[in-house]
């Protein structure tokens, strides 16, 4: 019973949504699809609460047990609630509430969260440089081809590099765009995309039919 009902629900909803593109929308089947879609959005919204409960429980336990680094956990909890509580309160009570311009949420988002996220993303430049230095070795013929191609594409994607390439014989930027990006790259990407899409479709079918149940805790 614990798994039968979820499997039936997964089968029915999966079947409706999988068949929906083959039915017109202005009839009962289209209505059913739209109804399920709206349910999905509503149910999904509620699941966000699960995250708040988990993060609070895990961090609160660490604080009460004075685990190593518990001070940081206090900061995490303060940050979660400082951002969440004012954002869900009604802006009619105060302009500091809600998520509009001038609210606490907006101030924290614009001045703290957004720059921190951009900073983390920017660290990728450092990691990529370090990974390229260690991993890009001409160990074999294939690795050497990869290395030369990557170098040319990197040069082509920036103005200073283009300036260098234009001084070399042959129209290298055109060749790169046509044969590397629009040729070899595209062929490989298509192969991976088609394979991955079939894999995803097969997995979806296994889930809809209840063959694959690992995701619900059943082997």
């Amino acid at each position: 019973m614990r798994t039968t009902i979820p499997i039936i629900v997964a089968f029915l909803s999966g079947l409706v949504l999988a068949l929906a593109p083959f039915f017109r929308e202005d009839n009962w089947f289209g209505g059913l699809k739209q109804e399920l879609t709206e349910w999905l959005i509503i149910v999904g919204g509620f699941t966000l609460l699960l995250g708040v409960v988990s993060i609070t429980r895990v961090n609160w336990t660490a604080v009460t047990r004075r685990k190593e680094g518990w001070g940081y956990k206090v900061l995490t909890l303060v940050a979660v609630f400082a951002m969440a509580i004012p954002s869900v309160l009604s802006p009619e009570w105060s302009t500091l509430f809600g998520r509009a311009d001038g609210s606490i949420y907006d101030w924290l988002f614009v001045n703290l969260q957004s720059p921190m996220m951009a900073t983390m993303f920017a660290t990728l430049a450092f990691y990529i440089a370090s990974a390229a230095y260690r991993a890009f070795r001409a160990r074999s013929v294939e690795a050497t081809i990869l290395l030369i191609t990557a170098t040319l594409v990197m040069l082509w994607r920036v103005p200073m590099g283009e300036w260098i390439l234009e001084r070399l014989p042959g129209d290298i930027p055109y060749l790169l765009n046509t044969y590397i990006m629009g040729g070899a790259n595209m062929a490989v990407q298509r192969g991976i995309i088609i394979g991955a899409a079939l894999g995803a479709a097969s997995m979806s079918l296994r889930i809809i039919l209840g063959i694959e149940r690992t995701y619900m805790g059943k082997g």
Partner: peptide, 13 residues
């Protein structure tokens, strides 16, 4: 940065 990475790859090799 792109030119630097290319220089690093050459040096690494």
């Amino acid at each position: 940065v792109h030119l630097l990475i290319i220089a690093l790859v050459i040096l690494g090799n």
